[in-house]
């Protein structure tokens, strides 16, 4: 039990005091902060709505005249709320966070190339290398090829994310073998993480070319 800094009412740890509506300022997991069940599939609009509504109730601007303890609780609760929203908003960070809650760490070394991406990664790195070395004449053609490649990467990331979200729904629905699902989630997450890094490398190479 925790005690409300505003009305001293004892309550379960949660974002807002059920008695007086003041923020309690306690640490919670991201799902609890947003008063959501631990489900993986989330509607982003609904999530945003919940975040805004809760934000209005706990933000420090609402408690400018309150006691220092309440103001501090409001600051902590709002920070927690923002962090929770940002964590859950992106399906990839939501998936990682959820795995962490389950004590299922992703492989520490994310730099390892997922086998199904190996060929693609090799080709992209080679293209980036060529672009960096390129002389004036060939830059434009190379750039166009790299841009095309970027589109391909983006498409693949989007498809992988769809796959991830399908697995989210399957998990929530209790379908399939649990451990298999967890493994699929892990594989999709590291694939997306790798694609994001690769896309960033491509963007940097393109920016570098534009700067010259």
């Amino acid at each position: 039990m925790v005690q409300c800094p505003s009305c001293a009412w004892p309550s379960e740890p949660r974002l807002i005091c059920p008695q007086c509506g003041a923020p309690l300022g306690v640490e919670l997991d991201c799902f609890a902060a947003l008063e959501l069940p631990r489900k993986l599939a989330l509607d982003s609009r609904e999530l945003e709505h919940i975040y805004h509504e809760a934000g209005r109730r706990v933000h420090p601007d609402r408690f400018a005249a309150a006691t220092p303890a309440v103001r501090q609780a409001s600051l902590k609760s709002t920070a927690l709320l923002t962090r929770s929203y940002r964590t859950l908003r992106d399906p990839v960070s939501r998936g990682r966070y959820w795995l962490e809650l389950m004590d299922e760490k992703l492989a520490e070394n994310n730099q390892r190339v997922p086998p199904e991406l190996a060929e693609l990664v090799f080709e992209v790195q080679q293209q980036i290398g060529e672009l960096r070395e390129a002389q004036n004449g060939s830059v434009n053609t190379l750039c166009a090829a790299v841009r095309e490649r970027r589109e391909e990467l983006a498409g693949l990331a989007a498809r992988t994310q769809e796959e991830l979200e399908r697995n989210f729904a399957r998990w929530d629905g209790g379908a399939g073998e649990r451990q298999d699902l967890v493994n699929e989630l892990k594989s999709a997450l590291s694939k997306i993480a790798y694609l994001r890094t690769l896309t960033r490398d491509v963007d940097r190479a393109l920016e570098g070319t534009a700067a010259h």
């Binding site: 933000h59 601007d61 400018a64």
Partner: peptide, 16 residues
């Protein structure tokens, strides 16, 4: 004004 409202009722706006 919004901050002063926090002593009273105004809760139409929040600036983040």
């Amino acid at each position: 004004g919004v901050l002063m409202g926090s002593m009273g009722s105004r809760d139409d706006m929040l600036l983040l």
